[in-house]
Simulated assay, not measured.
Amino acid sequence: MSVLAACLSHTPLQGHFDPAPAILGEVDAAVATLRSRVTAFDPELVFLFAPDHFNGFFYDIMPQFCIATAADALGDFGTLAGPINVASAAAGDCARFLISSEIDIAVSHRMQVDHGFAGPLKDLFGSLSTPPIVPIFINAVAPPLASCHRSRLLGEAVGRFAATLGKRVLFIGSGGLSHEPPVPQIATAAPEVVERLINGRNPDEGAKAARIKRVISAASRLKEADPALKPLSPGWDEEFLALAQGGDAKVFDNLKDEVIEREAGASAHEVRTWIAALSATGAGQHYHFQRHYYRPIPEWIAGFAVASADRG
């Protein structure tokens, strides 16, 4: 068996509110480098760790971790839409392995996923026509959240399962570093917003357009350094990347939610997807980490990073 991790930020704002062409060129070059590495690796099976943004998962029942035996991309913000090529049998076997390993994971036979899943598939494969995928949702925006320690244990268990398959396996971690887009919090939201957080499935076109407008407005204000918005945190991002560079996933256990949120923003909890992917790559051993790109991009409300890793 051989393994590779591809970790990268995602943004639904690409094409809606972009940075300068030179920065776009930098991002494109970094993603192309990662895509070339994935293409050369030629994965036979992909485990994709990604969050949701109240598009597929809601507070009517919010699992911390969920694995899909079937999944569809919703196409929010005009991103890729349609069925994902899910490795159903492998996903079911993985779920049983995780539960026997005392990882309490939910199972969905009809998962709906958003740009957090679709974005990296487009970046790395160009479409939803991909190698077989095992989609794994990690809750990163709907408190209370399982700890970074639990994401590390999840990833390590997935890595141990993958080691039983004798395949070339790619682990994808899809998430931003520092960022705090206008995602409402159920504790402080107005009653009508709370209802959308509990069950906001199948929004009409007006609601979709309003959401895009709201996020673009926030990005525009962030670019202008509006003090009402939490800025990106390059310092925290560099600290996280330094932890990743060390090659020992156990260091992520020291990340505390209140510090992440205070220093990097409420959606920086998405680094759990990186933690899971890197932990799966190491599967309890060291991994080699390669940083390809980092830049804070306010137009995309993201500390935007691209990296890869293999078994150390």
Rank of each mutant, 00 (worst) to 15 (best):
G15S: 12
H16K: 14
H16S: 10
A20H: 15
P21H: 07
A22V: 12
I23E: 05
L24K: 15
E26Y: 06
A29M: 06
A30M: 08
V31N: 00
V31H: 00
T39V: 12
T39D: 15
A40H: 13
A40G: 04
D42I: 00
P43C: 14
L48R: 02
F49P: 05
P51W: 00
D52H: 12
F58I: 11
F58G: 03
D60I: 09
I61S: 14
F65L: 13
F65T: 04
I67G: 01
A68H: 13
A68Y: 09
A71Y: 12
D72A: 06
G75S: 03
G75I: 03
D76A: 04
G78L: 10
I84Y: 06
I84Q: 03
A87G: 07
S88M: 09
S88H: 11
A91H: 04
D93I: 02
I99F: 06
S100N: 15
D104S: 12
V107N: 03
V107P: 01
H109Y: 10
R110Y: 10
Q112Y: 07
V113W: 01
D114H: 12
G119K: 00
P120E: 05
K122R: 15
D123N: 14
L124I: 12
L124E: 05
L124A: 06
L124Y: 07
F125T: 03
S127M: 04
L128G: 03
T130D: 07
P131S: 09
P135T: 04
F137T: 05
V141C: 11
P143K: 13
L145K: 05
C148F: 10
C148Q: 06
H149T: 13
H149V: 06
S151I: 04
R152C: 11
L154R: 01
G155A: 10
E156N: 10
A157F: 08
G159S: 11
G159V: 11
G159W: 03
R160T: 13
